[in-house]
């Protein structure tokens, strides 16, 4: 059963990953390329080749591989990213399915939401998606530690949120939704006030930075939705129904 779930998860991840790969190819690659040249242009114009400039080094560093290679590998990475998320999603879903609120396919979307909060949203509250040419505080090791720490915090918040929902509403009702929202809103509020500014977008126009971050958030959310949707569809196709659902059906329609 575990292996069946994993198999469907990887397949769902592949479906979502291919869609994400297409997004990488037709939207993200050209956009990032454009932002890269924009950042480079401003750099050269503004500082007039300042010596030992950090972001200048970063820009040079980014071109250690040819742009064509970067484009192709980035598309491939997008597909693999989907497969990784799909596999992890399925394993988590197998073990947590009985504990998730909602019935049937709604459970998959609840878990996808928790995953999105854990893997992306929580870390982004401290380390927002960086645009090409952005200046980042701290060294990469510290930033990685912050990222992982925020993932753990995000998972905790998601768990508390789901626990609160089940505890208060017994699985139904508006009060439950409000209770579930409290930990998430608190996390956002606390980080908005207390988190240090790590990403400095520099000379990139603010509107472009906002658009880029919006695209990043939406594309990752779409990836999770697609993983959950495809997984639910594959489960239904395989005729899998949880014991809880079967029992509720027996109670409602004898």
């Amino acid at each position: 059963m575990l292996v069946d779930y994993l198999e469907r998860g990887v397949l769902a991840g592949a479906i979502a990953g291919i869609a994400y790969g297409v997004y990488m190819a037709i939207v993200a690659n050209p956009l990032i390329g454009y932002m890269e040249t924009l950042a480079d242009g401003r750099e050269h114009g503004g500082h007039a080749h300042g010596t030992g400039d950090h972001s200048h080094e970063a820009a040079e560093h980014a071109h250690a591989v040819s742009e064509a290679t970067t484009a192709v590998v980035s598309v491939g990475s997008g597909v693999l990213w989907g497969i990784l998320l799909g596999g992890v999603f399925a394993l988590a879903f197998y073990f947590l399915e009985p504990a998730l609120p909602g019935r049937g396919r709604l459970k998959t979307y609840v878990l996808a939401g928790a995953g999105f909060l854990t893997v992306s949203v929580a870390p982004w509250l401290v380390l927002p998606p960086a645009t090409p040419g952005a200046e980042l505080a701290f060294d990469p090791t510290v930033r990685s530690a912050i990222y992982v720490g925020m993932m753990v915090l995000g998972a905790l918040v998601a768990a508390v949120s789901i626990y609160g929902y089940r505890r208060v509403s017994g699985g139904r009702g508006l009060l439950g939704v409000v209770t579930a929202a409290i930990p998430i809103v608190s996390l956002v509020a606390v980080t908005a006030v207390a988190a240090p500014t790590v990403v400095e977008s520099g000379s990139t126009p603010t509107a472009l930075v906002t658009a880029f971050r919006g695209l990043t958030v939406l594309s990752q959310a779409a990836l999770w939705t697609l993983v959950a949707g495809s997984f639910g569809w594959l489960q239904a196709r395989a005729g899998v129904r949880s014991a809880t659902d079967r029992r509720e059906d027996l109670l409602t329609s004898p």
């Binding site: 993200a28 591989v65 970067t70 997008g78 990213w81 982004w124």
Partner: peptide, 13 residues
């Protein structure tokens, strides 16, 4: 480096 664009697009940089 060859994953550069992907890392930007996924917000993991």
């Amino acid at each position: 480096d060859s994953m550069h664009n992907f890392r930007h697009a996924a917000g993991v940089i």
